[in-house]
Design a protein around this nucleic acid. Sequence first.
DNA 1: CTTACCATGTAAGGCGTTACATGATTCA
DNA 2: TGAATCATGTAACGCCTTACATGGTAAG
Lengths: 181, 181
Amino acid sequence: MANEKKIDCVILGLLSHEELTGYEIKKRMDTMLKYFWSASYGSIYPALSDLVHRGLATKRESGENKRNKLIYAITDHGRNYLKEWLTLPVYKDELRYETLLKLFFGNEQGAECAVHHIESFEEKIEKELPYLLGAQEILKKSLNDDTAHKYYLLTVEFGIRTYGAYLEWCKEARTLLMEND
Amino acid sequence: MANEKKIDCVILGLLSHEELTGYEIKKRMDTMLKYFWSASYGSIYPALSDLVHRGLATKRESGENKRNKLIYAITDHGRNYLKEWLTLPVYKDELRYETLLKLFFGNEQGAECAVHHIESFEEKIEKELPYLLGAQEILKKSLNDDTAHKYYLLTVEFGIRTYGAYLEWCKEARTLLMEND
DNA sequence: CTTACCATGTAAGGCGTTACATGATTCA
DNA sequence: TGAATCATGTAACGCCTTACATGGTAAG
């Protein structure tokens, strides 16, 4: 049980807090986890079926309407599996920034092109930072409502700090590129 | 020519500065690029053959010894391809930190486990930061030797700033987890 | 009534790692 | 002479995204 598939662990992690449909799982990822993790439907739905087969989750229909939603829940077995994975050491943290790649080889095209990439990067970060700050506000206020919120807050604050560092670096980098050239 | 394979661009980028063997390309990646990019031999060697087939690079043997090294060089065509890619907007910057995933779901195992993961993360960063600071020193001094050094310095300073932010966050996160619990 | 979002899934294909296989060279 | 490093490659496999396919529901 050494190398757990990450997609399984993410799904079980989300299900450990509440029952969800595949669609809702994707939504959670695209909002709460998007700053450090992502997955597509093409990996979520098959993973869900697989988790049910292995007895780590259950699937039931919301019998209410004509169009039934498929609601997934974690089992005890699934919760143990998740807990086990949580205690295991981190296997890999990975950062792949194409922006830095283009910058590293920037000498081939010159400063102007590099500055452009930095500005695009800067804009993207500036656009996303407010969402993180908003989430931080909400989580700080609701810290006592749910013990899980403390852990969510941690990851949000990671984002805020790194994004802050990114913006400082952008300024520095632009300056370095534009001086005496 | 919209979505260039990144492995091709990295290799061409490295070859744009100097002729290299496949082995040396891997070495460059593991030292200079490791903070924001990585690749294995299993992707480098096939990519090199492919670049030669497409006329973006050339391959020659260092005829000196019995055991001939295979030295790759960029062609004009390859340099144009690289330049083209450099001007294209960044397609995707991606961060996948398993540490943050384990932290996000940390409520399931509790604070002690989460603190462990933060400490491991912290140690890893503290171990790597000196290399970045060393590289920064060297690059600052040799800025006039090679116009490419300015671009290398940029990426090194990105690493230094983000690693600094990580360490600050680690302290904050540990504090938050250990207080009134 | 139509646009946007909710909702579930599959198939093909891309991309890359891991593990394996092989052998030379260098340095202690 | 043995270990570490240099050096090149292949094969199997895993994992994931993209694109496709389909239809329900809610709001304006």
